[in-house]
Each structure stands twice: as structure tokens, then as C-alpha cells.
């Protein structure tokens, strides 16, 4: 039953004050359909809430979806909290509306990958699978 043990757990969260979560839900469902366990926490999450949920749920991946423009503060802050809580190996990815010029700074802050609007969900799934298996001790 080692396939059960290896099941990928993902937290999908929406930091900030975005008014809707359609995109996040589409991704959440796609990851579920790809066989992952997806914990969905809904709108208006603070970095503290997200880090706490990631800790309690012992996830492999935190996916942050953000449209509001506050990504340069909220995303690095979330990563910082995760690391401070000892979640050093959790993979953090982001999606939503994030200008290209901000991506290098976010990556430097610990966001492994930024997916732009309209990224095919297959691409997200493939990236997560690969990155998680590279991080797991085999």
C-alpha cells in the first residue's frame, strides 16, 4: 500500500481580499482528479491562516492563488511563516495575476514556480508530481 502512503497532499489557499475563487477551484478539482488530496480553505486567508493550515494538514505542497495585486507582500510572508514553523521542505507554488517582472523576486523569496493565467492544469499537475518526488526521500 505504499501508493497510499505517497499520495500527494496539497493545500490550495487564496491569500488577500480577492472576491472570487473560480480559478483556485478549477485547479483544486484538477488536482483531485489527478489523484491528489486537496485541502481547500476558501477566500480571504491571511498568511498566518495559510501557514497554520499547511502545518496541521502536513501537506507536501501549498498552492497560492492571488488576483488582488498584493502578491509581493503576501506570498513571501507566507513562505517565511512556513519556514519559521519548520516546514522547510514544503513546495510553494503560486498562480493568478502576477506580472512577469515580479516572478524573479518571488522565486528568490521561495516560491518555486509561478503559473500565469490560463496555464493548462496538466502542466501544473506534472510540475507538482515531479517536484514532490524530487523532494521526497526515496
Amino acid at each position: 500500500m505504499s501508493s497510499e502512503e505517497k499520495r500527494i497532499r496539497v493545500l490550495i489557499a487564496k491569500p488577500g481580499l480577492d472576491g472570487h475563487d473560480r480559478g483556485a477551484k478549477v485547479v483544486a478539482r484538477a488536482l483531485r482528479d489527478a489523484g491528489m488530496e486537496v485541502i481547500y480553505t476558501g477566500l480571504r486567508q491571511t498568511p498566518e491562516m495559510i501557514a497554520e493550515a499547511a502545518l496541521e494538514e502536513d501537506v507536501d505542497v501549498v498552492g497560492l492563488s492571488i488576483l488582488s495585486g498584493a502578491h509581493m507582500t503576501l506570498l513571501p510572508r507566507t513562505v517565511e511563516l512556513l519556514r519559521r514553523m519548520g516546514m522547510d521542505d514544503v513546495l510553494v507554488v503560486a498562480g493568478g495575476i502576477i506580472p512577469d517582472e515580479d516572478v524573479p523576486a518571488l522565486q528568490a523569496a521561495g516560491i518555486s514556480r509561478v503559473f500565469g493565467p490560463g496555464t493548462p492544469t496538466e502542466e501544473i499537475i506534472a510540475y507538482i508530481r515531479e517536484a514532490v518526488s524530487a523532494r521526497r526521500p526515496s
Binding site: 488536482l31 483531485r32 489527478a34 481547500y40 476558501g42
Partner: peptide, 13 residues
Amino acid sequence: TGGALLGDRVRMR
């Protein structure tokens, strides 16, 4: 698929 969408936390914020 064995996958799951766990949404109960939404109501526990």
C-alpha cells in the same frame, strides 16, 4: 482516482 477535495476547513476559519 483516489483523489479527494477536502473543503470542511472553509467553514472553520
